[in-house]
Every structure is written in structure tokens, then in C-alpha cells.
Write a protein that binds this DNA or RNA. Sequence first.
DNA 1: CAGCGATTGAA
DNA 2: TCAATCGCT
Length: 690
Amino acid sequence: MSSIVWFRRDLRVEDNPALLAGVRAGPVFAVFIWAPEEEGHYQPGRVSRWWLKHSLALLDSSLRSLGTCLITKRSTDSVSSLLQIVKSTGATQLFFNHLYDPISLVRDHRAKEVLTAHGVAVRSFNADLLYEPWDVNDDNGRPFTTFNAFWEKCLNMPFDPEAPLLPPKRITSGYSPLNAPSFRHAYLVMGDVLTCTTDVLVFEDELEKGSNALLARAWSPGWSNADKALTTFINGPLIEYSKNRRKADSATTSFLSPHLHFGEVSVRKVFHLVRMKQVLWANEGNKAGEESVNLFLKSIGLREYSRYLSFNHPYSHERPLLGHLKFFPWVVNEGYFKAWRQGRTGYPLVDAGMRELWATGWLHDRIRVVVSSFFVKVLQLPWRWGMKYFWDTLLDADLESDALGWQYISGTLPDGREFDRIDNPQFEGYKFDPNGEYVRRWLPELARLPTDWIHHPWNAPESVLQAAGIELGSNYPLPIVGIDAAKSRLQEALSEMWQLEASSRAAIENGTEEGLGDSSESVPFAFPQDIQMEENIEPARNNAPATTRRYEDQMVPSITSSLLRGEHEESSLYLRSSAEDSRAEVPGTVNINREQRRDILNQAIPETARNLQLNFPIGLRNAEDSTAESSSSSRRERDGGVVPVWSPPSSSYPEQFISEESGIGASSSFLQGHPQSHQIINWRRLSQTG
DNA sequence: CAGCGATTGAA
DNA sequence: TCAATCGCT
């Protein structure tokens, strides 16, 4: 009765319900499957892979100290790899912890179906959230649509989040002589050294190794380091969190995000430890401490909410949640995009942030808001481009969190920032970096500029610039876009958007035609070619190249030249055929009025599934789970074996929410045309064994 | 010190 | 925008 424990983004032995279930059930095969191609658009970027590599090594060593080891597999299809492992080991059970991004939801559901069909008992657990998304609803049992209400509810749930589980004391390895007859695969026990039959995973190529070497100076992946980071934070910066959070440059953040992303530490543990501090400080009457805890927990809450949104709106990483935004005329300008990436926009705070991001894979939360809001509001570039760049460069890249962040910044959420608000980086600079230290650190060319001018060098007198060795437009750019120009351009764009929205609405109500947004998606953007930092590039100027507006919702740029076209045939075939099948069923451009349309779509159960180009229905929770999930009494059950699946896209969302049907054409045809539009450079060239 | 408009800052 | 806080009378 051996079992497979399938590790994914839960690379820890403590508070790991799937691992514990496996240990209870008998001998364990701990497995990690590396199948980046499965992630489609969002394969991990360079720094993310660097982290994963080290984290896996540490997980392996802690598993070894407990008596087993980590079996790693290179794969292009996790589910068939699991099946293969089942066959070679004779395991009869599979345990894993839930993930909530759309790709994992689909994959995990399939894993469960396929393995169950092969006679394997599959159980899955919550290890990533305080509460499962389907447990947090408003008084009418509907999902929340704003963060504050959601978080309020989380903090006032009738039951506390589960307390963290202790790590197992010992793990009986599936690879033990005792089990030898039960699997056909070769195994080795040499002396005391346990050898697993693993694939050697390659996470970086030679080029990347050089860039990655620096990362190790600042970061230590792995669960034990995550624990250290947590303790350090709780006993140190936490109490000042509220006071310090507006400084760009102080090391007062928790630095937990990459650890949390890979599940090296469980958020339940973080939550419990932080809450204990809060109780302590509350007793001492330490108001500032309490306030700090509330703020910090709120950021944990945002992480929860990002999963919540992703679960309830599986397209939130690529489509605005507010419907009218699909009519926003984004500016498609590769020059802007490049200047932003290189930190050459002419706004010191933005540029410093972008240089730091490139150099370290890290950015303070405040600065993330600054650079992304500049990207969306001043440059008016499509937010998904920026999100994709973050994805490729951030050490803590996290699809759900980043989608939430960018949607918030872009004003595409019901409770997001106002769309027409432009933050001025000059003023933000003096707020977050009053002495200019942050700018000077990351922009050496401005190092000698006095603080008075550090955040707006374009206003500085010529003599000051000369003394500081700065020649604007030469060794530091002039502002790429003036704030006033950006403001009026934004106003124009917004009124265009509302006009388009209104005429589309009218068209739909008259039953004459679809809105613009649904029909014009077939022309791909000319995507930026290369994300490499090229320092000697001529800086972008005020007289930027002519810009184009596009009225469809944006697509994500391919960051590289797609030398890889064609290699995806297999998976894109799958997507293509199922996408076509589903399109046939969608009442896309039929002449029906809005109400009818809504009804049809609400009835169409596998709608979400179609949106995702699935070839199996997933819209309703599958029968065996539905009892556990729909009756609130058994919902909490931690060992529920519940694989998260969507409920049908709810009609419960406010009118202004984008209806799930719009954009379906955009997405599927986008995939058809650009099956590998997200390839990361060098990705395919990594030779993998197995 | 209440009452008011102004200011500030917000995932 | 909107709510909380500030600062003035």
C-alpha cells in the first residue's frame, strides 16, 4: 500500500497535509514533476527557475534525513508521468495539495480523473490558503467581489484556519528493500545512501548561470531559510511594518514572498505566528505593533484573495474583470516598453525600480505599484505586457498575485484604483525616497545630483546638471512622456473607451452586431523581440515614435523571437481542436439580445471549460466531490479529497463585470495563432534528460 | 471642544 | 472617489 506524494508548490515537510497523509498510509514515493511546457504562457522565468532548483535540493535533503528522497521527473505531461510512476512503483494512492491557477486546476482535475480510472485512490488537500475559496462567501452564499469584504469575512470566519501540522518524524521510503517486490523499477540502496530513480532536471543554461550567480548573495531558497526569514521578520521588522512600509529602500518587508510562492513555508504558519505576536502586543497596549500586524496580515490577505479571484475568475490573469476595459485603446509602442524595461523612462524613481528589478529580481511593493502604474497610466501600454515582464523577472513571480496586482493598478477590478488617476513619479519619489538614496543606488548616472532635483532632473538648472555630470537626453533620458501629456491622452482614451462601450452595448441591445472587442482580435501585435538589457541603446526621447492604438484587449507579447515555433505542435493541436469544438457551441455572434444571451450562457455548464479549451467538462463540481463541497458542514474537511474545480461562472457578479463569454474568441484564436507566444528565451535549448 | 472645510492617501 | 485625519475657528 505505497503512495505517491506529488510535490508542486508546497516544497516543505512541515504543515504539509499531503505528505502527512502519505506517511500515514505507508511507504511513500515523494515526487516532483518538472513539466514547464504545461504552464503554457507562464513558464517560470530565469530567476524563478533558479529558486526552484535550490528549493528542490533542500527538500530532497530534508526528505533524506527523514528516510526517503525526492524523485524528480522531466515531463511534458504531468498526468502521464504520474501514471507511469504508478505503474513502475505499484503505488495505490496519490496525495497532493491544491493549487488555484487555471492551469493547475485543469491539470489536477485531470490527474484525479485519470488516476482514479486506473484504480488509484486520489486525495488532495488545502495547504496553500487559510480558507479554501469555496468556503468564503457573502451572506447570500456568493463569492465576494471586493477585497475588503472578502478579508473581513476571512478574519471573522466561524472557524480558525487550521493550525500548522508538524513535520513527520520518519518517512518510510517506497524505495526500501521491504518494498522491492512491489515495484519493477531499479532501485539502489548503497550503504546508507538512498538513490532514487530520478531525472536530472536542468533549470538554467550556461548563459543564465552567470546572471544567477549573484542571486545567491541575496537570497537563500529552501524551507529552512524560509523559516529563518519568517522568524527574523516577526521578531524584527514586523513591529515597524506600518511605519516603514512607505519607504522604497528600507529592508522592512518580510521577504517571504518567494518562499510562500513555492510553499516553503505555509501561510497558515505565518498567520498563526503573526497572530500570536498581535495578541502579545495587544496585551501590552502596543498600538503601533497591532496596526503593523493588521497591515501585514492584509498583505497575506491579498495573496489569499489572488487565489480566490483566480478560482472564481480563471481568466483574471489575462482579461480585465471589468467589461468596459476591453474597449480601452492601449498604446502599442515597443519603444516605450523597451525604455520601461531598461529603466530609461526619464523618471528617476521608475528607472531605479526597473534597474533594481533587472539586477535583483526583487522590488519593494511600493515600487512595484509605482512602475506598474506608470506603465499603465502614463505609457498606457497593455498591462499584460508588464505583467508578463514581471513574471519573467521577479524572483517571487506568482501568477495569481501578479494578476491581482496588475488588475488593481489598471483599474480593472471593482475595487481597484480609479482608472483616470495618474500618480506622478516625481511626487512619489519624494514620498518614498525622500533623500534620493534609492535612486542614487540604482542610477549611478544621477548619483551626484542634489536631492532637490533627484526626482525631477529635467527641471534642474543647467549648472546643477553640469556639476553633477549629467547631460539630459544623453547619459540620462528626458521624460519619455510628460505627465500632463499623459493625463490628456488618458482622458481621450477613456472617453473613446466609453463611447465604444456604449455603442457596443447599443449594438448588442439592438441585436444587430457584436461589439468591437469581440471581433477584432485576429491581428496580432508586433511583439517586442528581446528582453535583454542593452545599456548602450539610444534612450527614448520625448519625440517618441508614432504610437498605435489597438482597440481589442491586449495580448501578451512574445518576449523573444520565436525561434521555437512548431515545437509546440502537439500541445497546440490539442488546444486547437478543442477550442474549435467549443467555439461551435458558443452563441458568439448570433443575434440574440442580452438577456437571452445571459440565460444561455448561464445554462451552458462547461462554459468555463470551453474558455479554457478543455476537452472535458469541468464547470460543475464533479459528482463525487459535490456533496462534500456544497454542504457546508463537510466543507471544512481537511482530508476532503476535494480537487478545486470551478463553479459555473456566476451570474452573481455585478453587471459591470465582464461576462465570461466575451473574449472567448480572443483567447482561443489567440492560442491558435500563437501557441508559443510566451516562450522565454533559451527555454527550449535547455537539454533535459528523460 | 465641536464643527467645519481642506488635505491626504489608498493595494 | 471616499473616508479618515488635520487644522482652523
